[in-house]
Design a protein around this nucleic acid. Structure first.
Lengths: 245, 245
DNA sequence: CGTTTAATTGAAAGCAGTCAAACTATGTGG
DNA sequence: CCACATAGTTTGACTGCTTTCAATTAAACG
């Protein structure tokens, strides 16, 4: 049951037959809970297990010297948490729980075998990896070439579009529990400046702060323009074949 | 013949049998030359062909509004130029020739079929995609959390290590034909500031400019420290299996 | 409640950007 | 081989976005 969000998400990216879905869904799974702030994986380590995020939010981070941290991606329920770990020898980043998380854990080897037996599964993993890579490139652009206010607006748009596409957000209110420090680490800014930019966005009615780490976005299109955002890079329906469906 | 650098590179990342190699090498290939500055692919377009860089250097770029450009990756001979295009519906970035380039072009469909028939090929593509993704994350960290001088030193280290690993650089002199403007676009800086930082690195004997777009690096370890560089993220020998060889 | 964490605000400093000009290298055509 | 055009590099002066430092306020939590 627990892997179904993952399979469903994969199926949107790349066509899967019933056998492919069942192949994944019938793998022995164990559930694991990670408290907010906890580590799901650490840089430099290998892992023989593969985790899927079932509930909560997680992120990948990398550290530079001087304790400088860059958050390089956000994971939402249905996302694979360590696709690289499935095929690379050692993780090149930490994976941490942003909120309390619930994950589904399977043995890597079983998944690799499945990918070997069923090309459509391998392909779906490939598509997922390529989409994540695309998002990563957009982040480079965001961090490297947009000003602070635009960066933040862009990240908010991205999260809105991603969560909405997966049915996790409905309406104009979005759950966005990043602290301003984390938001800064994701956009290459300091928490102080993030605060100023959020206040600026709020002053212009682009966002509204709500109780419980929620944000209301009165007009997505306005925020989209403020964030120089276009959803193309998210490849919400990614596969070349999936287009014909 | 032309695809052999690509196959050899793939084989280092992930184990390939003779049949896998031959499967790729026997595909119908055509060569294509692209002059420096020319476009190999454009954002938003699909392509039914797959290109491998045989000679020269290429890069991927993304544009923000205001003509701001971010170079999001560099390709060296042996690299696939548009792995995403093989499995995603539309390119999310431009691919351009940095210098005059020679590419090997094959039909995407043939390569997808091959990946479907031979799991090891699919896996090698996967590993290559994941490594590129890892590099992309490191670029985010570089752009987001390192100061200008460090960023440039880091990029120089990266290029040194990558080209050396592929036998394209020997000794302490490296071919590095990026203009300062391009270097700025790759690091999230302006050309003017890149110039200042290069002069600073040169003043400290970390780099030496040579004729013909070449750079001498007197001491790689010193530059490595200046660039906060560790090669882990390059996954030079990437596969979990490849470790046992 | 008291304690801790996060958000907010102000003032000052600094890194990188902008603008502008001069210089150098490279390549082309006469 | 020289004159010229073009592209890229270098330098200086100034501006400004973002950071840093510090202190206060608000919110979350046991």
């Amino acid at each position: 049951m627990t892997l179904s969000v993952f399979v469903e998400h994969l199926g949107v990216l790349s066509p899967l037959e019933e056998h492919d879905r069942e192949g994944i869904l019938s793998l022995p799974v164990s559930e694991k809970r990670i408290p907010a702030g906890g580590y799901i994986a650490r840089e430099g380590t290998a892992s023989s297990t593969f985790s899927v995020l079932i509930d909560g939010l997680a992120y990948c981070q990398k550290l530079a010297c001087f304790n400088a941290r860059q958050i390089v991606s956000l994971a939402i329920p249905g996302d694979a948490l360590d696709l690289p770990n499935l095929f690379l020898a050692a993780a090149d980043h930490d994976i941490r729980a942003l909120t309390d998380c619930e994950t589904a854990v399977v043995h890597s080897e079983l998944l690799r075998e499945l990918a070997q037996r069923r090309p459509a599964v391998a392909r779906a993993f490939m598509v997922k990896a390529l989409v994540e890579s695309s998002v990563s490139r957009e982040w480079s652009l965001n961090i490297g070439r947009r000003d602070a206010r635009t960066r933040i607006a862009h990240l908010l748009c991205e999260h809105m579009v991603r969560t909405r596409a997966r049915g996790l957000t409905t309406g104009d209110i979005m759950y966005f529990p990043l602290t301003q420090e984390q938001l800064g680490d994701a956009t290459g800014l300091t928490a102080v400046h993030v605060n100023r930019m959020l206040r600026s966005l709020e002053a212009d009615n682009l966002i509204e702060k709500r109780k419980g780490s929620q944000i209301r976005i009165p007009c997505v299109d306005t925020l989209r323009m403020a964030g120089d955002f276009s959803a193309r890079y998210l490849h919400l329906r990614a596969s070349t074949e999936a287009q014909n469906q």
